[in-house]
C-alpha cells in the first residue's frame, strides 16, 4: 500500500477497519438506523416536515409556500435514509500534548483517531466535520463527505498544534448552539476541566438531540502514575510546578483519577452518552475495532 501523504491518516490501519468495514458499516448503519428510527430529519429527497427557521439555516430550503400562507419562515426537512452528520471534536489543549512512554502524545493519538473516524464516515457517505479546540475553536470544518473535504480534514489536522489552556465546557456550549442539526458528536479529549461544567455542556448536546461518543483519552502514565523518585512536576497548560514524592502519593492519585473517570463514566451512562476510556498505549485502530465489535454485539441483542 502506498505511503499516505497525510501525517495522521494511516491507510494501512484504516484498511484493517476497511476489511471489516462491512461490519462496521452495518454497525454504523445499525447505529445510524437506530438514529434513523427516531425522528431524524435531514436533507434527503423526501420531504418530511417543517421546522421553524433559525438564523444560519440554508435559505435554499426555505419553504416560501408556507411563508405565503403563514407569514412565518419555515425550513423543509427531508428524510435522510442513510447519511449521518457527525462532528469530531478534538481537544488540542496543552494537556493533550503529553506522552510518557507511549508512541504518541494524546494529541497525536487524537489526530490519528479523528482522521481514521473521518475517513470511515466519509467512505460511508456520511457527513463528517471536525472541530479542534482548546480555550477557543482552532479549526471548524462543517460536515461534508467529499474527498476534497476529507483532504481538508487531514491537512487541517496536520496544521494543528497543541495549545495552552483548556475551556472545554465553554466550547461545548458554544458548539451545542452552533450545531443546529442533530447528529453524532464524537469527542476526543482528556476532559481536564471542571467535570460539573463539562457534564452540563454535554447535557446541552443531549438536549439538542445529539448522540455523543466520548473517547476519554489518557496516557497510561496518567492512569497508573508509575513515577518513583521525588519529581518536580510541571503543568503542561499553566506551567505551575509541584514537587511530589510519588511513592507517598500513587495510591491516592489513582483514587483521584479513578474517581474522576468514574464520574464521567457514570454521568455519561445516565445520559446515554457512549463513554470509552482510551489509554493511548493501545493502538487506535485496535481500540476502534474492539469498540465497534462491542457495539455490534450490544446492538444485536
Amino acid at each position: 500500500m502506498a505511503k499516505s501523504p497525510y501525517l495522521y491518516f494511516q491507510p494501512e490501519r484504516a484498511a484493517k477497519l476497511s476489511n471489516i468495514s462491512l461490519i462496521a458499516r452495518q454497525v454504523v448503519e445499525g447505529f445510524i438506523s437506530g438514529l434513523h428510527r427516531s425522528p431524524h430529519h435531514g436533507f434527503s429527497v423526501e420531504f418530511s416536515e417543517h421546522r421553524e427557521y433559525s438564523p444560519g439555516d440554508d435559505l435554499r430550503h426555505l419553504d416560501w409556500v408556507a411563508w405565503g400562507r403563514t407569514d412565518r419562515y419555515y425550513i423543509k426537512q427531508y428524510e435522510q435514509e442513510t447519511n449521518l452528520r457527525a462532528y469530531i471534536l478534538l481537544d488540542t489543549s496543552g494537556s493533550m500534548n503529553y506522552r510518557y512512554r507511549a508512541e504518541s502524545t494524546k494529541f497525536q493519538y487524537g489526530c490519528y483517531l479523528a482522521a481514521c473516524l473521518a475517513y470511515l464516515m466519509a467512505r460511508q457517505q456520511d457527513l463528517v466535520g471536525v472541530v479542534a479546540f482548546d480555550r477557543r475553536i482552532r479549526l471548524h470544518l462543517p460536515p461534508a463527505s467529499s474527498p476534497a473535504h476529507l483532504d481538508r480534514i487531514f491537512t487541517g489536522l496536520e496544521k494543528l498544534t497543541p495549545g495552552s489552556t483548556t475551556a472545554i465546557a465553554t466550547t461545548f456550549h458554544e458548539l451545542a448552539e452552533r450545531i443546529a442539526k442533530r447528529g453524532l458528536i464524537v469527542i476526543i479529549s482528556d476532559l481536564y476541566d471542571d467535570p460539573s461544567a463539562v457534564l452540563r455542556a454535554l447535557q446541552h448536546f443531549c438536549y439538542k438531540k445529539h448522540q455523543l461518543i466520548i473517547f476519554h483519552t489518557f496516557d497510561p502514565a496518567e492512569l497508573d502514575f508509575p513515577f518513583k523518585r521525588i519529581t518536580n512536576f510541571v503543568d503542561l497548560e499553566s506551567g505551575q510546578r509541584l514537587q511530589v514524592d510519588p511513592r507517598a502519593l500513587s495510591q491516592a492519585y489513582r483514587g483521584e483519577i479513578g474517581a474522576f473517570i468514574d464520574r464521567y463514566r457514570t454521568e455519561c451512562s445516565d445520559r446515554s452518552i457512549e463513554y470509552v476510556l482510551t489509554p493511548t498505549a493501545e493502538p487506535y485502530d485496535l481500540m476502534l475495532l474492539n469498540y465497534l465489535e462491542r457495539r455490534k454485539r450490544l446492538l444485536r441483542r
Binding site: 496543552g94 494537556s95 493533550m96 503529553y98 494524546k106 482528556d190 481536564y192 496516557d219 496518567e222 513515577f227 523518585r229 521525588i230 519529581t231 518536580n232 512536576f233 510541571v234 503543568d235 503542561l236 497548560e237 499553566s238 505551575q240 510546578r241 509541584l242 514537587q243 511530589v244 507517598a248 502519593l249 491516592a252 492519585y253 483514587g255 483521584e256 483519577i257 474522576f260
Partner: peptide, 20 residues
C-alpha cells in the same frame, strides 16, 4: 536535585497531596 517532569495536569496530584 529532584528531576523535572511535565504532566498534563497537577489537579489530581494536588488533591492527592491534600488528602495525604
Amino acid at each position: 536535585r529532584a528531576p523535572q517532569a511535565y504532566f498534563p495536569t497537577l489537579r489530581f496530584l494536588r488533591l492527592s497531596m491534600a488528602k495525604t
